[in-house]
Amino acid sequence: MKFKRRQVEEIYINLTPMIDCILFILVILLLTTTFQQQSRLNLSLPDAQGVPPKEFDHKIEVMVDSSGHYAVNGQALSSKELPDLSTAIKQAANDRRDLMFVIAADSAATHQDVIRVMDVAGQLGFVNINISTKVPTRGY
């Protein structure tokens, strides 16, 4: 008796759906990814009569905006928490406590936010702490 042989079909994998899924995931990732941008704090410093500022080669400048957010040497911190502020100041200082420490606080910043910065600086051992102000413009 003669039996019919079954035809064996060639196996092939269709990659088109897989490529479509990968491209879709890539598009979703690109749309939801945020890129780190250097953010700047807008400060409105209080006016004060005083000595013109001196320029220092190395200093640590902590900025406090009106909503209480901090920035250390221009790098904005992600939270208002004291451990984050302390860590950022330690990294900027590189174990040097003799650097000029400048606090630039917005005129609308709360007293508590400025005191927090002073407290952290004191705990870390900084002794040369200055508060930055804006010299008013004089019309002649």
Rank of each mutant, 00 (worst) to 15 (best):
I19A: 10
I19P: 03
I19R: 08
I19T: 12
I19N: 03
I19Q: 05
I19L: 11
D20C: 15
D20F: 13
D20A: 13
I22V: 07
I22R: 00
I22T: 04
L23S: 03
L23F: 06
L23N: 02
L23V: 08
L23D: 01
L23Y: 04
F24M: 10
F24H: 06
F24C: 08
I25T: 13
I25S: 09
I25M: 07
I25W: 04
I25G: 12
I25F: 07
I25L: 10
L26T: 14
L26V: 15
L26F: 15
V27N: 01
V27Q: 01
V27C: 04
V27E: 01
V27I: 09
I28K: 02
I28P: 00
I28V: 14
I28C: 09
L29K: 01
L29H: 01
L29N: 03
L30I: 14
L30Y: 13
L30T: 11
L30F: 15
L30R: 08
L31V: 06
L31M: 07
L31W: 01
L31S: 05
T32D: 03
T32P: 02
T32N: 09
T32H: 07
T33Y: 02
T33I: 06
T33R: 03
T33D: 00
T33Q: 03
T34L: 00
T34W: 00
T34S: 00
F35Y: 11
F35Q: 04
F35P: 01
F35R: 04
F35N: 05
F35K: 03
F35T: 09
Q36F: 01
Q36I: 08
Q36E: 02
Q36K: 09
Q36A: 13
Q36D: 01
Q37E: 05
Q37L: 07
Q37A: 14
Q38I: 11
Q38S: 15
Q38F: 09
Q38R: 15
S39N: 14
S39R: 14
S39I: 08
S39L: 09
S39Y: 07
S39G: 15
R40D: 06
R40S: 12
R40G: 06
R40Q: 15
R40H: 13
L41R: 13
L41N: 10
N42P: 00
N42D: 06
L43V: 10
L43A: 08
L43F: 07
L43Y: 02
L43H: 04
L43K: 04
L43T: 09
S44P: 04
S44R: 14
S44F: 11
L45M: 10
L45V: 13
L45Q: 14
P46Q: 11
P46Y: 13
P46F: 12
D47V: 15
D47I: 13
D47R: 12
D47T: 13
A48W: 06
A48L: 05
